[in-house]
Design a protein around this nucleic acid. Structure first.
Length: 196
DNA sequence: TGTTGGATCAACT
DNA sequence: GTTGATCCAACAC
């Protein structure tokens, strides 16, 4: 038996308006859903990182509000997608209330739906499609045009499937040079889809 | 108007 | 462990 869409209840705005570290931890095990032009893609989140406010030197909001990071200064529950290193995009979930700039970077996920589309978006040589923020966005077909989407809308959103992960671990964030010692990376230690 | 470096990844040594 | 690919936002001038 097969389904034609992932099951679960969409996370409400109130989920995102809480403290960023709480949101980051609770995002693990949730299902990211994207209504791609070719069909529905979904993956279960297994690795995230928190970027919190203007005090966090690694957070893009540390330089103050700019055109690029403006969405982080808005209300929680929106997408923040940026382009980096000339070839990759990264997907973030904006958290906390307006004027409290913070976000959670989606680093890795386990594909559970729309594998044919993910495969079509990825290089044929690639075996792991979503074990890193750049690869995950490529697999989903996300780019800067998806910046600022309302995650309480019907294009890009997260589902609570009722799953409650038990093996959550923390570590310092990966790939940054500023404030690299903050243990704000959360991941499911038993997952085979973690980055690195 | 020009320069620089980054929340990455893969392919090297 | 190091490096190249390759774009754009931020900042210096």
């Amino acid at each position: 038996m097969s389904t034609n869409k992932p099951a679960g209840s969409k996370l409400p705005r109130s989920f995102y308006l809480r403290p960023t570290l709480t949101v980051a931890r609770e995002l693990l095990g949730k299902t990211l859903v994207y209504h791609h032009p070719k069909g529905i893609i979904a993956a279960e989140l297994v690795e995230v990182e928190a970027y919190i406010g203007e005090e966090d030197k690694a957070c893009h909001a540390a330089v103050g509000r700019t055109e690029r990071n403006a969405v982080m200064f808005g209300n929680g529950g929106f997408s923040y997608v940026y382009f980096i290193y000339g070839m990759y995009h990264c997907l973030n979930v904006v958290t906390e209330a307006k004027d409290s700039p913070a976000a959670v970077l989606i680093r890795a996920a386990e594909p559970i739906f729309g594998l044919d589309i993910i495969r079509a978006n990825s290089p044929a040589s690639d075996k792991k499609y979503t074990n890193g923020p750049g690869k995950l966005c490529r697999a989903f077909g996300l780019d800067r045009s998806h910046n600022g989407l309302d995650l309480c809308g019907d294009t890009l959103y997260l589902l609570d499937t009722g799953k409650r992960p038990t093996s959550i671990q923390t570590s310092p964030r990966i790939g940054i040079k500023k404030s690299a010692d903050c243990p704000w990376r959360f991941f499911l230690s038993e997952s085979r889809y973690i980055s690195r």
